[in-house]
């Protein structure tokens, strides 16, 4: 590790050396481009080199945006399951699947208790999260609880309520 660090340092020093030569080179290329057409080409080249937005990992994880992103994730999970079931129920006679409520209840009831609780929790947590976080979003749409402190406070309340209610739904409901 130390050796790599030393190599990086020496490379940086190498890059930083000879600045006078660098400036001469830049001036030479600008002097060539004295006509308007060439100046415009330089402008276009600069615009094409503008920095692009950094990816998500550069941002600090904060209560303002993490649950908002998870709102879309949990909504997609719930709606995806809803769509998969609806479409599968429509085509089930073609393939001989038994997706009527009695068969599904019997199949689910035959699972071991741990699997049942785990499956219920896996469905209940996205449901409670999306429901309670949806209330926050609707409140923001009305312009309420929209200060930074309120968003953070309601965020922690929402996380607590949705986790507890998901456990309650999985274990006792």
């Amino acid at each position: 590790m130390l050796a790599q660090r030393a190599t990086q340092q020496s490379l940086r020093r190498l890059a930083a050396s000879n600045p006078s030569m660098a400036s001469q080179m830049v001036f030479k290329s600008l002097a060539v481009g004295s006509s308007m057409q060439t100046r415009y080409e330089i402008l276009v080249a600069q615009r094409k080199n503008r920095p692009t937005s950094p990816h998500l990992t550069i941002y600090k994880p904060q209560m303002t945006w993490i649950p908002s992103a998870l709102n879309r994730v949990t909504g997609s999970v719930l709606s995806g399951g809803f769509y998969v079931f609806g479409a599968a129920y429509l085509v089930s006679p073609l393939f001989g699947w038994h997706l009527d409520s009695a068969s599904m209840a019997a199949a689910f009831g035959s699972l071991p208790v741990a699997a049942k609780v785990a499956a219920k929790f896996a469905v209940a947590l996205p449901f409670t999260f999306h429901s309670f976080n949806g209330l926050r979003h609707l409140s923001w749409d009305l312009g309420k609880t929209f200060s930074n402190q309120a968003v953070i406070r309601t965020g922690y309340v929402m996380l607590g309520v949705s986790t507890v209610s998901a456990f309650w739904l999985a274990l006792f409901a």
Binding site: N18, M21, M25, V26, S29, A45, K48
Partner: peptide
Amino acid sequence: NKPATSVLSRPAVRNAFV
């Protein structure tokens, strides 16, 4: 970053640095 012919990334300019 495709436009390798960009004025700013000309080999001559880059050679001055590295």
